[in-house]
């Protein structure tokens, strides 16, 4: 090729798009994801706007259903079943469990069906497909932080004083977000290939809710089963939130480390599994 003084040619050279057959184990193209951040932003905005479109109470609808659930659980387990709560108001136990749990529950549900719900985009334009399951993770943060606000207000109302350890909640929630992302990626990719996953999901989430200390304190589980129970990555997340807010028990080190390891493994493997499915997604959906 001859030397060309035309500067525009340089810009052509720098942007060559290569189209190749699907390859196994493609790494994530972080640069490309960053280039599509605006798309991510508008899709998140779209999801948030759709939830509140046409409602009078708007963001109140984020906190009302969990407050109702929390009330029911407090009456059922705290007052009727008399589950011991170690001097703490039972409603605080339930609320603190529900903050990370509801985020996980809602986002994983949405992420699982996200590819099918956005099929009209996937079959018409190119963008990094990873954006699609990430959208509900970001949109769900609104709910997560609103509910966290409610929890903090409730804690203050019940007479507990703010403490430096409250800051640790951020760490716990980041862990919850990563775990949610990993599981969300796995299920969204699985649901593209196997539609039965979508039907199975509500059952799995329900089982998971009762296998985690969401509606009851960790101490409610017999101590001889801790070794097994603590393998659930949600134990470490919820218990560390309760430790940060209410103090009392020693920091749940064992279950927290389990959570960190599980979240990392699931997230990393989730990204790769998603990548292996995304190439064919437009053909299958």
């Amino acid at each position: 090729m001859k030397f060309s003084p035309d500067l525009t040619n340089k810009s052509h050279e720098s942007k060559v798009i290569h189209i190749r057959p699907p390859q196994a184990w493609t790494p994530i193209n972080v640069v490309e994801l960053w280039q599509h951040r605006n798309l991510l932003f508008y899709l998140v905005l779209r999801d948030i706007r759709i939830v509140f479109a046409g409602t009078r109470l708007g963001i109140l609808w984020v906190v009302l259903p969990p407050l109702a659930t929390a009330t029911v659980m407090t009456v059922m387990l705290g007052f009727l079943a008399k589950v011991p709560s170690h001097e703490l108001p039972y409603s605080l136990i339930v609320l603190s469990g529900m903050v990370p749990w509801l985020y996980f529950n809602n986002v994983v549900s949405k992420a699982t069906f996200s590819m099918a719900a956005n099929a009209y985009l996937l079959s018409k334009v190119y963008f990094p497909r990873l954006i699609i399951p990430i959208v509900p993770m970001l949109a769900g943060l609104i709910d997560l932080f609103s509910l966290l606000g409610v929890l903090l207000v409730a804690t203050l109302l019940f007479g507990l004083m703010p403490h430096i350890s409250w800051l640790f909640i951020i760490v716990s929630l980041i862990l919850a977000i990563f775990l949610t992302m990993g599981v969300g990626l796995w299920f969204s990719a699985l649901n593209v290939k196997y539609s039965d996953i979508g039907k199975l999901l509500p059952i799995l989430l329900q089982l998971m809710a009762y296998a985690s200390p969401v509606f009851y304190p960790h101490s409610f589980v017999p101590a001889k089963w801790y070794w097994l129970y603590d393998l659930n990555p949600f134990v470490g997340i919820i218990e560390s939130v309760r430790w940060a807010l209410f103090g009392g028990n020693p920091f749940p080190m064992y279950s927290f480390i389990v959570s960190v390891i599980t979240a990392s493994v699931i997230t990393l493997s989730g990204i790769f599994f998603f990548r292996s499915v995304e190439d064919t997604a437009a053909d299958i959906i």
Partner: peptide, 16 residues
Amino acid sequence: LSRITKPTSGYAEIHG
């Protein structure tokens, strides 16, 4: 060509 789906085999490149 618009990268919505990938080819089974072959190669293509787009400049610009």
